[in-house]
Design a protein around this nucleic acid. Structure first.
Lengths: 242, 242
DNA sequence: GCGAATTTGCACTCGTCAGTGCAGATTAGA
DNA sequence: TCTAATCTGCACTGACGAGTGCAAATTCGC
């Protein structure tokens, strides 16, 4: 994951000690998440990692480097999971054809599956901690954006846009800007979670996430598939209920 | 705004000195936003406020109280602006009737206006700083949620839901859950801004906000007005373009 | 087991910062 | 003008934490 450690010194150092480096990175992320950058102290990080303070300095230099490395590692981990999910968003043509006249709806099902899974990861305490730290320190460490997001949320958006383009081209969605579709799909999914989870401080029950995913997909499909292509902007075309 | 100061001591104190209190709160918010809670120092706050360190302690007690007060003040200010905006979301019936068969679309226009303005505020540096600080310190100061959000984003959502209910009842939107509609409208608007403004560190040009607002309203209306009410989940009802 | 690198515990320096105390300047109100 | 409150500048304490140095213990590769 964290692409080959910079090999602290001479030839040795890439021994069975790599797990110690990882333990330090994990501990660092935990402590930074709990206390914030300025509030975290190196001693506690060492303690949580089960390691002497000196060892932390030996492996990862000063506090700032440690922070950077810990954030990058956490970001890479989250990114890998998310990306794997987004790539699942494919609807094989056979499934579409075989249910052409039936009641099944493979596109909807697939979107809901992916949405559900994305929300699950997005609500993971680790994800929230990462997001919070990013928000917290972004003004003091602008490089974090590239290091954490450039390898995470950004590529997720791209991958998702690719899938949208495929769906649109296959006629499963109306013709649209796939980037915009991906952006709005993600917005519909994750937007509501911020308030519902109270910035990640409240655990959101599975059922509630399910609900949000369902609502997001419904709205998305209404807009990107079911809507009349040239829907008249005039209110005279309303169903005029009640 | 910040409901009558607690009147530090005896009878006096509510003199022309209230502006000094406000200056301290403003300075505190600025410094906290720049340095984070742990990284901010009282001396700098006093300096920015143009006041002696002692005066800060006299007016607002210790660092924690000051932080709480500054966040609450900033939250109230942002809330007032947002709420005033959401309440603008009304479409008077005469406008609807007079353009019944024409090309104007009062609902879309109104939604876009409100969306544009909401985005404008949402991208304000002050708003971003507040959000960032909230994310940053929420685990250490859980009360902030109630103090800042309970009086802000939460009421915005409520107000917006009220407007949605009106629109739906008036037949200008399809029958729907107004709370969900408000939630998704906000998500479509503000969701994309997080990435586009890079967590508030990049100033988003007016034109880009305009674009996002337009796209959000288009998708929202497609889903909440133009979509066929009982849109079949079967892919056989597709327009099958291209 | 041997030697080299690593790890550990401890003590130490240095800087920062919250919060307080005090004496003198300033200001508001009567 | 007089009085009482407030504001200011300055010095000070006490706590905390980053980063370093060193000698002894440990561990790894061979």
């Amino acid at each position: 994951m964290t692409a080959a450690a910079p090999a602290p010194r001479g030839r040795a150092a890439s021994r069975g000690r790599i797990d110690k480096r990882q333990a330090i990175l994990d501990a660092a992320f935990t402590v930074f998440a709990n206390r914030g950058y300025a509030g975290a102290c190196m001693e506690e990080i060492a303690e949580v990692a089960g390691v002497a303070k000196h060892t932390v300095y030996n492996h990862l230099g000063d506090k700032e480097s440690l922070f950077h490395a810990a954030m990058e590692a956490a970001g890479s981990a989250v990114m890998a999971e998310n990306l794997a999910l987004a790539e699942q968003l494919t609807v094989d043509q056979s499934a579409v054809a075989s249910t052409a006249g039936g009641q099944a709806d493979p596109v909807r099902t697939r979107l809901e599956d992916v949405g559900r899974l994305l929300l699950h990861q997005c609500c993971d305490p680790r994800s929230w901690a990462l997001r919070r730290l990013l928000h917290a320190e972004i003004t003091r460490f602008p490089d974090l954006l590239e290091a954490v997001w450039g390898r995470g949320a950004d590529r997720l958006r791209q991958t998702l846009a690719d899938r949208m383009a495929r769906l649109s081209l296959a006629g499963l969605l109306r013709p649209c800007d796939p980037v915009e579709a991906a952006e709005q799909f993600l917005a519909l999914l994750t937007g509501p979670m911020e308030a519902r989870s109270q910035l990640g401080t409240r655990p959101v029950p599975d059922a509630e996430r399910e609900l949000v995913a369902h609502a997001a997909v419904s709205t998305f499909l209404r807009a990107y598939r079911d809507a009349a292509p040239g829907a008249s902007p005039s209110p005279s075309s309303l169903p005029a209920t009640a």
